[in-house]
Design a protein around this nucleic acid. Structure first.
Lengths: 110, 110
DNA sequence: CATTCCTATAGCTCTTGGAGCTACATAATT
DNA sequence: AATTATGTAGCTCCAAGAGCTATAGGAATG
């Protein structure tokens, strides 16, 4: 399927690059097969794991307390505290929100 | 504490209204105490529960498949399927993301 | 000064969402 | 006809997050 995609004549050099990148991501298992068709999914900001220190730095960058930060993410303040102390690791939707804040600021999720 | 806040001379009529609204929300237990100081938290889009039908309608409004929708939210496609069939109920961070999409569209979390 | 709040930790228990998997029917592509 | 994507279904398992109490330190307020 990857090879097939590569061989397909792309509409533009830019699109061709997107195809290449997609194929590579796909090979690495980072992209769902469906994204080979639905290209808007590629415009997503990549979701990376965040260390406790990075989470704390992120929150302090936004100048908010743990309770307020938690309020933005719709989690309990305890959760934020545990993230920053490494007791729990955010993943899935929580990690997505944290990455959104990192990339676009708190206002992006307000 | 609520009365105390009410008695405080507000800087403007608008701010006074905000105080009033905050106090009421606080009385209803909808707002964390911290928000009485951190006002930006009030600018948050309220997070409401979504029914299975509303979730499906939301996804179809954005013209994406379950796998792609899941990709945006950084959850597995199975999760989206279960939400739409009422098998699982999104809450916390997932619900926040869904409300974000509803209020601002998929691009807001891209 | 004393007092009142907010913050941030810490230590618990418990529920359930989401991960991760397989399998299947349908529909759309090619 | 063969391939590919979709949506549903059933299952197990883990850990995130909920929810609670208690504590200590700091900041604001009187």
């Amino acid at each position: 399927m990857v090879a097939k995609t590569r061989n397909k004549r792309a509409a533009s050099p830019i699109l061709a690059s997107v195809y290449e990148a997609t194929a590579d991501l796909h090979k690495l298992g980072l992209v769902d097969k469906s994204t080979m068709r639905e290209f808007d999914a590629l415009c997503l900001t990549p979701v990376e794991p965040l260390s406790p220190g990075e989470i704390r730095a992120l929150r302090e960058r936004e100048h908010v307390s743990q309770p307020v930060f938690a309020h933005y993410l719709n989690v309990r303040k305890d959760a934020v505290s545990k993230w920053e102390r490494g007791e729990k690791k955010p993943d899935g939707p929580s990690l997505k929100l944290l990455n959104l804040v990192r990339a676009k600021g708190l206002l992006a999720i307000a």
